[in-house]
């Protein structure tokens, strides 16, 4: 099975699954300001999904700053680079 290593695509898929939306509804430039389904409860599900993906709790800085697909992609890339 091919594993998608593109952090942007992984982030889009993560957000789509957390918000229970098709992946086509989550553009790479999407954020809490542009995706209507990304409400407060959706945001909780997104952050918990990130923690599940990285295998541990998010830092305070991450919780404070992650609000877009790009933010999530950057965080996932950083986690991958750190070997977590």
């Amino acid at each position: 099975m091919m594993v998608d290593r593109d952090p942007v695509r992984v982030a889009c898929r993560l957000v789509a699954e957390a918000l229970d939306r098709p992946e086509s509804d989550i553009p790479p430039e999407g954020s809490i300001h542009t995706i209507s389904a990304w409400d407060s409860l959706g945001h909780v599900r997104v952050l918990l999904a990130i923690e599940s993906a990285i295998g541990g709790p998010l830092s305070s800085d991450a919780i404070a700053t992650v609000i877009s697909v790009a933010d999530i992609a950057a965080l996932l890339a950083e986690e991958a680079a750190s070997g977590r």
């Binding site: 407060s40 945001h43 909780v44 952050l47 305070s60 404070a64 700053t65 609000i67």
Partner: peptide, 23 residues
């Protein structure tokens, strides 16, 4: 609190700036 993620969302959605963290 950091684990009140819905509240964090509400602040960011309205354009509040994260100014710092009380550890």
């Amino acid at each position: 609190r950091i684990r009140n993620m819905a509240s964090v969302y509400n602040h960011r959605k309205l354009g509040f700036v994260h100014e710092g963290t009380l550890r």
